[in-house]
Amino acid sequence: MVAIILVIIMLIAAVVAAVLKDLLGAVIVAALVSLITAILFYLLQAPDVAMAEASIGAALETVIFVIAIRKTERFEDK
């Protein structure tokens, strides 16, 4: 039951990341998707993979995307 609710939240967050025009907001929502993916790995009894996904998705991915947005532009124009 916990898994079903988490999956629904994750898919909603992924759709929001696809729709948003603000790229910074999309990156933040992608961080939430990565976080819930780590919890699903943990529920599937794979703590090694959950630790890798947590340490990558929590910090490094967000930092890399934010640096790339800083070097380019923030808003996706029409």
Partner: peptide, 28 residues
């Protein structure tokens, strides 16, 4: 994490990612 990789969850890849996160904090 990477010294205890053969006893607990974790290992070289996860420990390396954590160390790189620490360097990212210094860069920030």
């Amino acid at each position: 994490i990477f010294v205890h990789g053969h006893l607990t969850p974790g290992g070289g890849f996860q420990g390396g990612a954590i160390i790189a996160s620490g360097f990212a904090l210094i860069f920030l």
